[in-house]
Write a protein that binds this DNA or RNA. Structure first.
Lengths: 250, 250
DNA sequence: CGATCCATTGAAAGATGTCAAGCGTAGTGG
DNA sequence: CCACTACGCTTGACATCTTTCAATGGATCG
């Protein structure tokens, strides 16, 4: 059991469903839009973005095979992206937290290759790609920005590949926890205490482990005083040890 | 002690490959540049692309940390991309065959996150990104094309994630062989017989397996008449069985 | 309250890693 | 031309880790 106070659920905007929020004043814009645009250009961008999609847990944002039209910035909550194998087995390809962008896989063949499902109540900003494309032709720094966003998605997926290349289960789980931790601190949330938005089953699927193994590793890390676990609540007690484990140290 | 291999020099005078090749008549352009550009636009693109980089086995195309300047299309041969962990362990993030493009990871932070090394003698087309960016502002279909290329890289890395998510070694190796097979047939090469450009060690590193396991799986698949193996030469005898194995069927 | 879902735990089976030995090839220097 | 070494690969025996199968408990919901 963890005896410290419960973690208050934090939202990323004053009101996560406030439709009046604009990119200019969004708390997340340093993450999803680190732009050097003029104020009027931000306004033009702002005008094409739609913010009318609150999702409940389990809702699909889009499905693999749907026609590609938009990319989506996560504003609050969390989602998972997954592909369906030929036989019907799902493989989670990533978890996306506020400030991160999903749907960029759909551009290649004009249809999404992943389905994206809300892990909890979530709100997103829809960015119609056609209009973004047009605007990018007029705003060089916006074009560059989207090239960079896609590049960042590539590097992050390479980090996942690196994570999955680790041989043992402990290293993979440690890496996942560290990843969530650092993404939280980027949003000025605690790097040491947070709620996992996904189930053990999702973690296992993502990391190529069974749910039982995930559970056992959590228990083992807890017994070793590296982390505290209470359901979805995680407290990192020994960041250094966790980093060592992520590297594969015994 | 780590011995750095020399980086191939741009100034190499004698290129064994035809420098007169242009994107317009390159055999690979349906893969790396499936463009709907006007003939004069292809010419403009053609003018910014440099084709003077023959690499020998083991040569670096670029190193992680180098300043980002260009992306590279593989013209012949094969390369591997790898990241270095904090401790010094390498993780291969991908193999790139002719018609495929490396270096798009470098755009996010203006420096490459991967090192890219030739697996065999290879030639590449260098595409300076600044100039590509400028040209993209004038040619909407080129801008779209590069968005699509990056999107394709994203989807392909998601396929790798899916591959690594598979629990057993047989499925991972089967998937890798099928990937190489299909990429070969895209280039009108045999889907059933090919030479692996990479070592067993590289395969193991990429798939998160030890070299011994890789070797054993090859032997087992050979004994099961699914494939034929002779050093780096692979013959797929039973494509169907290999696909079943890739799905995880026993 | 019963049903269901999610998570945890134990025991046994199976898969992969580790350690060790050996083989063949390519390259090197005598 | 012949050792000789270095390297990549294969194979075996054994240790270790993860999965599988089974049982249980807690939470949630109708």
């Amino acid at each position: 059991m963890i005896h410290s106070r419960p973690i208050a659920k934090k939202t990323d905007a004053h009101c996560p469903h406030d439709k009046k929020v604009s990119c200019g004043n969004c708390r997340l814009n340093t993450i999803c839009l680190p732009l050097s645009l003029h104020i009027e250009d931000i306004d033009r961008l702002n005008q094409i973005i739609q913010r009318s999609k609150p999702l409940q847990k389990g809702d699909y944002l889009f499905r693999a095979g749907d026609a590609f039209s938009s990319v989506y910035a996560i504003r609050s909550g969390a989602v998972k992206a997954l592909t369906m194998g030929d036989n019907g087995d799902e493989q989670i390809t990533g978890f996306y937290l506020p400030g991160e962008i999903v749907g960029m896989d759909g551009l290649a063949d004009n249809q999404y290759t992943n389905s994206v499902i809300a892990l909890e109540t979530a709100s997103v900003c829809e960015i119609p790609f056609n209009r973004l494309e047009e605007l990018s032709l007029k705003l060089p720094s916006l074009q560059r920005h989207f090239f960079q966003l896609m590049s960042r998605e590539i590097t992050q997926e390479q980090q996942i590949i690196t994570l999955l290349g680790k041989s043992n289960a402990e290293a993979r789980i440690a890496s996942l926890l560290l990843s969530i931790s650092s993404r939280n601190s980027r949003r000025n949330l605690s790097a040491n205490e947070f709620l996992l938005p996904m189930s053990r089953t999702d973690i296992g699927n993502f990391l190529g482990l069974t749910i039982e193994t995930v559970s056992r590793i959590f228990t083992r890390l807890q017994k070793g005083k590296v982390i505290g676990v209470d359901k979805k609540e995680i407290i990192i007690n020994d960041m250094n040890a966790l980093q060592q484990l992520a590297k594969g140290a015994e």
